[in-house]
Amino acid sequence: MSSAPSSTAAPAPVIRADHLTIRFGDVTAVDDVSFHLDKGELFGFLGPNGSGKTTIIRALCGLIPLTSGNATILGMDVRQHAKDIKRHVGYMSQKFGLYEDLTVSENLNFYAAAYGLSSTVANARIKELLALTSLEPYFTRRVAQLSGGWKQRLALACAIIHSPEVVFLDEPTAGIDPVARRSLWDLFFQLAGQGVTFFVTTHYMDEAERCGRLGYIYMSRLIALGTVADLQELPDANPPGTSRVEIEAPQVSVLLTQLRQFPGVREATIFGRAIHALVETRSIDALQAAFPQLAIRTIQASLEDIFVTLTLHIMGVPQ
């Protein structure tokens, strides 16, 4: 087994992807994607279904061959060290990966053995994880009898049974309630604080906002990378000469139709009792004149606004 390279003055990135390209026949699933992740980082990876998120995860775990480009995890090349990488990487998907007819204890012990942990190491680690996830009371219970939130905690415990330095979470909180989601994220932060690097894919914008840095992949290409603040500054997300405004209105749905036909309005969508719109700055006065009763105020782009604008921009929708 090869070990991670000895640390020099500047720590090497934990995950390094350079010009990653993956093709399946004629289909390009991942197109020239590059990013670096540092130790203890919680990186959010966003993008529509089928945009290549899961493919990148599987490629970084050495399960899919790279067509071109390079990737290393903890300094190990994914092409040459796929087997070693598996021992340093945890993976959890929305499918849980748990055996419903086995108990919590049996699932943990199975994965411990699957990673080749000795029973002494396994027992100590299981005790530690039970404390971390508060699963002790359910130790002898069958997984089928657990609620979604507890299953998710157990899935996380199984995924990190071998104390991996890197954890990939593929839509880890899909379909569980907000309270369970929040407590799961608290666990991620706790582990990240201990130096575990997280790579999380999600569709939830509130989750994305919790991440230190974000990547947005669309049509196999990484089209945005940076902190939330970085993304809000992106020129593509804020086309020059435009402003984001919030318009409060008594009948938002009627107004939405009218707004979308109004010259100078590029995007408009409903947020509760208001409409968020991207309008040409010079049209704001005309808009106010046309709808004198409405309160229009400028706002900062939300993550969702940014991703929608970026996506439309890539698709070539005239702006």
Binding site: C61, L63, K83, K86, R87, V89, G90, Y91, S93, K95, F96, G97, L98, Y99, E100, Y111, A114, Y115, G116, C158, A159
Partner: peptide, 13 residues
């Protein structure tokens, strides 16, 4: 079908 196979492929099994 249940996704446990996907999880197994991520282990050194």
């Amino acid at each position: 079908e249940r996704g446990t196979l996907e999880q197994l492929t991520m282990t050194p099994i």
